[in-house]
Nucleic acid binder design. Structure first.
Lengths: 243, 243
DNA sequence: CGGCGTCTGTTCACTAGTGCACATAGTTCG
DNA sequence: CGAACTATGTGCACTAGTGAACAGACGCCG
């Protein structure tokens, strides 16, 4: 838990693009922490004291639990974004829990320090506002996707998103976890994965999905994340590199 | 299409609470327009030139159309909120189309004027940021709801939300429209409404739902909107600090 | 009054997804 | 090595939801 190095700051897209002035404001307050899968960054109902920036291949999810006890992931944040006092400026309780899904490095800053910096810099404020718009777009699309697409399509989408993070062909995730991220029954996920394996799209070991045929998996996915990625491109275009 | 009267401004919750200074900034730029069901306030992909404030019982929806041509409403905004340059400050194309669902009065302001006012007032900025957080919370909940709840639960929720706007027992909406808002097949909606009618929960005429048993309808609803309303209360209740 | 367009109820055959139960296989750890 | 977990595959009976088709019913307008 040491103050983050410049090299680490560069591993988050929102931070890597900052002008020197803005960076100098934030840098002293940023701490680097390694987090493993399942770690909770933000608890629903708690004050948003910390804001988190995933680095490299790390991935976190906004996870809601419905009244009947089923939990669902409704949004994902990787190195392109941040979690915490982004939309709200941190004055309010978190509506959603944020959980680490793919382990890795996370940068942490006190939301109060971030907000102070936002007050002093219009550029910083607008930059984060743009990212907020992208986050909202992502959740819009998730809501539409959940209403209309099959579990098979959504599962393919989820696996693709996970693989994009790890950067290789293997995605370490149990079927139980996948089912819980989608908010569906485990046995059905098992069946869908079985079908995909038979068709040669993926392999699967205990706690692991292995990509065999990218084109086929893309084809089975609903492709909702592509639309969102495009919006990210337009809104944050050229100002920072794509993942 | 005349400049809005003070009386009209009071019919939107976000505007009604403003301090005189902030109000004086915005007031001259606000225009009152009557809109009917189906009118489009914002088109996905277009620049967010205008920002809209629903008044009284008016209601608009964020409506997404998936690749396969099915459209779904993923969020609703009534007198408690606003549509347009809220999250993003209007620098970006709208991700979602915004459509009027319950007709009524809408106040319109150029997003650029709103943003100018936000730059000059920290209080205004924070106030809208808080509302943005509520909007995000609402969409989070919609995404979770769509993933886990039955069409029957979601339909009950939708009818309740509509009735809450009109203020009486009648909700003017065809089954076709309800189905399209949920992104589901019309015939199934017809069946569910038939069942509700048999149980005495509602009546239904051509193009109209009539509430008969509020408690029963509440009981059949998933209740997701209640959770969101609670968040609105916590985040926006009474707090609009003068800064 | 008659005609036309739209909304509604219902049938039918079918696919998607649930939830539980139980057998089996892979991992971990003493 | 063997015990104890945990993850996975699969059978089963069942509910939820689809999508097309068609017959009425309602309401409006000339």
């Amino acid at each position: 838990m040491t103050t983050a190095t410049p090299d680490q700051l560069r591993q988050n897209a929102l931070l890597s693009i900052l002008h020197d002035e803005d960076r100098f404001h934030l840098e002293p307050h940023i701490v680097a922490v390694y987090k493993t899968a399942g770690d909770v960054l933000l608890e629903a109902g708690d004050d948003v004291i910390d804001t988190w920036f995933p680095c490299g291949g790390a991935l976190a999810a906004f996870c809601l639990t419905t009244q009947d006890g089923v939990s669902v992931d409704v949004g994902f944040v990787g190195r392109e974004g941040a979690i915490g006092g982004i939309v709200s400026n941190g004055h309010v309780p978190a509506y959603s829990t944020a959980v680490v899904r793919v382990p890795g490095l996370f940068l942490r800053i006190k939301t109060s320090a971030l907000e102070q910096a936002k007050q002093e810099s219009l550029a910083l404020r607008h930059w984060f506002a743009r990212y907020s718009d992208c986050l909202l777009a992502q959740v819009f699309q998730t809501a539409a996707c959940n209403a209309t697409h099959t579990i098979r399509q959504r599962l393919a989408k989820l696996i693709l998103a996970g693989l994009a993070r790890t950067g290789d062909m293997e995605y370490p995730m149990t079927q139980e976890q996948l089912a819980s991220m989608l908010g569906v029954g485990r046995s059905f996920v098992s069946r869908v994965i079985g079908a995909m394996r038979q068709e040669g799209t993926i392999e699967s070991r205990r706690g692991q999905i292995i990509l065999k045929d990218l084109a086929a998996l893309r084809h089975q996915s609903c492709g909702c994340d592509q639309l969102v990625d495009d919006h990210f491109d337009v809104v944050l275009h050229g100002i920072y590199p794509k993942i």
